[in-house]
Simulated scan of single mutants.
Amino acid sequence: MLKPDKRTRRDDKAIRPPRAQDKRQTVSVRSPRAGASAPPEELSVPPGFSDLIGYFLRIAQEASFQALRQAAGKADLKPGWYTILSILSANPGLTPTELSRLCGRDRSTLTATLHGLDSRGLIARRRKDRDQRSYGVKLTASGEAMLRRLRVIAHAHDARLDAIVGRDKPALLALLRRLVDGLAAPAPQRPPNRRIGKRAKTR
């Protein structure tokens, strides 16, 4: 039997095309403990996440909250404080149920947020005269001062977002509204598995 020439095998290896390398996307993230001047870290997007809308919505939301916390100088600033304080300033005395409807948050998660605002002296809770089982919520003087500060920061933050998005802002807002409306609608029901039905008939 003829043995293959070693030079031929080396030549075959030389002409083989290189393996395709995985093109991994990266996102820039900044640690909440890092200062505002600290450069963001480049982290690889998990495999299979590069085209997931929900993943990038979550990443963008967290990046926005971190930027707000750094601008406010409060590491314990919770998402949604500005919205809640703004609603209470315009509607003093709202019940938690009414507030949850206006801010679009679940009552169970809103209760923990109100407790945090109350412990910091930003809101005051008072029992209703007609119904002692419910109470109304309003801002304190410290809450009004915090709202004024957050309002300035929020406007500057929105201006920064406008600069990042640029001319694509109308299209981005339209897509976000479509997501909100689509997710608010009932989810389509999956059709029944026909294969299972056919197997059941043949038995």
Results as ranks from 00 to 15, higher is better:
Q189F: 06
Q189L: 15
R133Q: 10
S86A: 10
A14E: 15
A60T: 01
L117Y: 06
R24I: 10
T8V: 15
A156I: 00
L179V: 10
S44G: 12
S37E: 11
P17S: 02
L43Q: 10
A185N: 03
L139D: 00
A163S: 04
T140M: 03
R195W: 11
K128L: 14
H157G: 05
T140V: 00
A75W: 04
P47K: 07
L176S: 04
P79R: 07
L176N: 05
R194G: 04
N91G: 04
N193L: 06
V27N: 00
D162P: 04
A156K: 09
A75L: 03
S44E: 15
I153R: 08
R33D: 14
S28I: 00
R24M: 07
I53E: 15
P4R: 05
T111N: 11
F65A: 13
A159E: 14
V180M: 10
A36C: 08
D168V: 01
A124H: 15
S28L: 14
A71F: 06
E144H: 11
L114K: 02
A112Y: 15
T111H: 12
Q189V: 14
L99M: 00
P39A: 04
I84D: 08
V152M: 11
S64L: 07
A141V: 02
A90Y: 09
T202Y: 13
G182C: 00
A34D: 05
G166V: 00
F56P: 02
Q25F: 14
G35N: 03
L52S: 08
D129H: 09
R151K: 15
G80A: 01
R19N: 11
R133T: 05
I59S: 09
D11W: 07
R33Q: 14
Q61W: 07
A200W: 10
I59Q: 08
L110D: 04
V137M: 06
S44M: 11
P4D: 04
Y82M: 06
K198R: 15
G143D: 03
R7P: 02
G166N: 00
P40A: 07
P4I: 03
A141P: 06
P186R: 05
G73K: 06
